[in-house]
């Protein structure tokens, strides 16, 4: 048996940071320029008491409410998050209980960012192909906003919080693959929250604020991103992984109906699209109202592509995620009769 997507739902927090409110906070800053370059107008921000697992739970409940699956059918929960409820226990275990999923189900968290959804699909394919599971809830959830210093414009303008839930079911015909993965830990320091875990526990020293050359303020307890380094990595890794995957599958770019990329910001996506000579209509951008949702971005784009009628039985879709780690992954998705968003 093989894994196939059988439904996708997502949830954004009610509260949002708009470009207008950023402009009011930073009157000396050309916010409109940033808005036009990033393509992001609204950044969803989780409430103070709202965790990533809460958003993923709401997304999963939407799948249940649609009648696509019952909690008692689920035999595995995969939760991709970098903002868990606790160091331990795993949030996936708490979600199993909260969602009423049988105690016979497997569940674990995995810590990845923008590449996480592709890795999750790879894990789901492995679990189903080896007979370890048949009905998987692949959840993503992150609340980067809780890591972001309010005076750090460099990341506050980019990231949004979200939760997604994808139902993955066993089917006879392969619907996913091949998979291509990549990792380069040298890039770890370029997108990081340096302190707060075991390597550098939270302390008064890690909480000390410092400013950078662009006037941003943060501490070692906050999210830091070196945007230029991330972009340089992306320029190398994304075309290479797309071309590598196509070669592995024996296909050309013309034979792909849709390229669903992680959504870092519109400027980077546009440059990558032009660099790879892909037509705009084949590279959807869904970033305006949800911002860069890290592991949530690929399923959110996929959901909207389905709602827009861009996914038809037989469609070949290339999924690619890339970012924190550095970590990247790509796969091909063959839309089938059972598949739905």
């Amino acid at each position: 048996m093989h894994a196939s997507i059988a439904g996708i739902e997502y949830v954004l927090p009610e509260q949002a940071l708009t470009t207008a409110s950023l402009a009011a906070e930073f009157p000396d800053w050309d916010v409109e320029k940033i808005d036009s370059k990033t393509g992001i107008h609204t950044r969803p921000v989780a409430a103070p008491d709202q965790c990533a697992s809460d958003l993923a739970e709401l997304a999963a409940r939407k799948l249940f409410e649609r009648g696509l699956v019952k909690p008692e059918e689920v035999d595995f929960v995969l939760f991709c998050t970098q903002t868990p409820d606790h160091f331990l226990p795993p949030s996936a275990c708490l979600l199993q209980h909260r969602l009423g999923i049988p105690v016979t189900a497997g569940a674990f968290d995995f810590n990845l960012g923008s590449s996480g959804y592709v890795y999750g699909l790879g894990l789901a394919e492995g679990l189903i192909a080896t007979g370890q599971a048949t009905t998987i809830l692949l959840l993503t959830g992150d609340t980067y906003s809780k890591f972001i210093h309010p005076k750090d414009k460099s990341v506050r303008t980019i990231f949004g919080d979200s939760g997604t839930a994808t139902l993955v079911r066993a089917v006879e015909q392969p619907a996913l693959g091949p998979f291509l993965y990549g990792t380069d830990g040298r890039g770890g320091p370029n997108l990081t929250v340096p302190a707060g875990a075991m390597r550098q526990p939270h302390s008064p020293e890690t909480a000390r604020e410092y400013g950078d050359d662009s006037g941003n303020v943060r501490s070692l307890d906050n999210l830091y991103m070196n945007g230029a380094e991330i972009f340089t990595f992306t320029l190398q890794a994304v075309p290479a992984s797309v071309n590598g995957l196509l070669a592995k599958a024996g296909l050309t770019a013309d034979e792909i109906d849709l390229f669903v990329f992680h959504q870092p910001n519109r400027y980077m996506l546009e440059h990558l699209r032009k660099k790879m000579k892909l037509p705009a209509e084949k590279v959807p951008v869904t970033i305006e109202h949800c911002a860069n949702t890290v592991s949530g971005s690929v399923p959110i784009v996929l959901k909207h592509a389905g709602l827009d009628g861009k996914l038809q039985p037989g469609s070949r879709i290339l999924l690619a995620g890339f970012g924190v780690g550095y970590s990247w992954g790509a796969t091909l998705l063959r839309w089938n009769q059972l598949a739905t968003v």
């Binding site: 662009s214 070196n226 945007g227 972009f231 440059h271």
Partner: peptide, 11 residues
Amino acid sequence: WDSMAMVSFIA
């Protein structure tokens, strides 16, 4: 000349 401009220069 900030991080966004640097990204544009790289592009």
